[in-house]
Write a protein that binds this DNA or RNA. Structure first.
Lengths: 191, 191, 191, 191
DNA sequence: GATGAATGAGCCTTCATTCAT
DNA sequence: GATGAATGAAGGCTCATTCAT
């Protein structure tokens, strides 16, 4: 999906895959170097250290996620149901473009290696999503529950689904995504 | 919640907390020893090695979780709605008794350190939960979605909620749990 | 062969076997305790530490070896050939009584754990043997070579032979010992 | 004697000295690193682990010893007496070139760390030496004793002699080596 | 006196990081 | 700029030694 040109991007891409698959602590610099097809020392020309690399990666993809969400942010006029579908489709699109990104973000968002900035960026993203829920709650359209719990339901369901797809346990057809989207909507909408 | 008596249990308890908070690879034996208030060498009187410790822990809590689920398994006569409530309450009780257990299980169930037995025990637990969903799906009461995705929704929501409680961001009152339980039910029930 | 009564002797005996078979560094205190059928802590009631144990052992058996050599020391009147036979038989008897003793002494006499006293005792024993060779050299009966080299020949041959016997590679009959004794004598006698 | 160029050879050389002087178990990786003037981690760029290092070393020197013995293997025509002198001189040359090698081989040939290949290489070397003795025994030139005992006499005497030389207790002149060689010959030849 | 559970120093080994080429 | 050989700090683990029972 991604067009990779510079060594820096090769390294980031290799890091994303490995961190997502193995986690930060089980991923070694030589592993990243091998996958990125660069020397281990080269990584240190682009990143201060391993922590810096994972934080760059985290912030970069949180940023991109925010961008996509902005692009998919529903117009004021549309129905709440339609608005939610837009946001959900944003996540689908994001994951199509960056296969491991969302899973990486989810599995690392409480990691001990994330610095202040990364935590803030992530909070920013959450706030953005929360704002949608909060507005919906005010209008009585969204269920009156903590926004974080609502987000957990949606993200959890989505990522678990995607994991099944990656592992080949499930066929990623249109109907499936629609079903999950509907399920999530029913979970969060007021009844 | 837990009554801790022997050193072995101190070590298991310290391991549970640290593995849940930091993950297996970021948790060191000295960390566990310090938290358990024992010497580092003492850990090796009770466990062959670090891997053995994490597997013991994993199997022990999966076992306990299965036990609780069995105890809360709904009687045949009750309504599906009531049955789900029972299971959900089982999770609430389990988490009240073992604060980090479910989160630990969730974050380690794909870990590279789990041995065959651990994987089998976990699969057993999943099968138990799945059987409930599958039966419901057959009866047209539960939504027609992959069981794993349904489990993800329920577990994801529940664990996220519990995290908010642990971090003090939310008041763990009756109404909250009821709300989340209802949300999960709406997410999985057929409409 | 040995009559073992006290725990102290059990420990010494276990140590002798294990040090001879595995060497000092590859022998652990728990191993010795198990073989001696005592608790690990009990060893420290009789010996200050592991080094002390091995030195006690070394000195004890060097002492016994000296005693046996004294007992077998040839009378002045006998022929040099007969005198050598006496000494050789002393070694045979010593090894029959303490299977691992001589091998233990040989493999540990340059060990880094031996203290000054042990080294002195060993030197004493060597001097005793040397004195025999020196006297013989003066009389022109023994070959004019460094006494240590002569000792090496005799001890080396004898221990190697004993090892073959222990490992069952060779039948320990009268003829064999006589043959080796004769070989050694030819190696050291003047021609 | 040896010209040392690469780090790998520095490590091997340091290992040879220390293993010969202290034995495998009493030699630590930091000791080897210090003596080789490299970082401890560097050793692991050249050898999988400590066991691998000692086996490499063992096989390498057994190999070289076999080579030297081959070079010194007596021509068919020469007298048995002359043949033995050749072989003995081979050992002298080998030890001049690699001071600790033969002693290292002798003290480690029953070590628990040697792998199958090392044992086989050593057996190969023994067979080569044995074949000389066996042939001599068939011809009635060599004494009718187990070949291993004959080897023990010759190797034992030779190594003990060399130790005296190393420790400066004896002057390594021509006459000494000739005397020991003659002694060994008398020990093994039929009378 | 005897025990063995507990300890922590020190070992082997890995891996993030540096630096000469 | 790029590399990978070299390093040493730090982790997992063992085992000599202590000490409460």
């Amino acid at each position: 999906m991604e067009e990779i040109t510079s060594k820096r991007e090769h390294i980031l891409d290799a890091g994303l895959h490995l961190f997502a698959e193995r986690g930060f602590d089980a991923t070694t610099i030589p592993m990243i170097a091998t996958k990125a097809e660069v020397g281990a020392g080269t990584i240190y020309r682009y990143f201060i250290n391993k922590e810096n690399l994972v934080n760059e990666l985290f912030q970069q993809y949180v940023e991109r996620c925010i961008t996509i969400l902005h692009e998919h942010y529903p117009e004021a006029g549309s129905s709440p149901r339609e608005q939610f579908r837009q946001i959900f489709n944003g996540m689908v699109q994001f994951t199509n473009e960056h296969e491991h990104a969302l899973y990486f973000i989810k599995t690392h968002n409480h990691s001990h290696v994330l610095n202040q900035t990364s935590r803030e960026r992530f909070e920013e993203m959450l706030n953005f999503i929360r704002s949608f829920f909060e507005k919906g709650k005010e209008q009585g359209i969204i269920r009156d529950l903590p926004a974080n719990a609502l987000i957990a339901i949606v993200l959890g369901a989505f990522l678990e689904l995607h994991k099944l797809v990656r592992e080949g346990d499930v066929d990623p057809n249109e109907k499936l995504f629609e079903g999950v989207e509907e399920s999530c909507w029913d979970a969060i909408r007021a009844h």
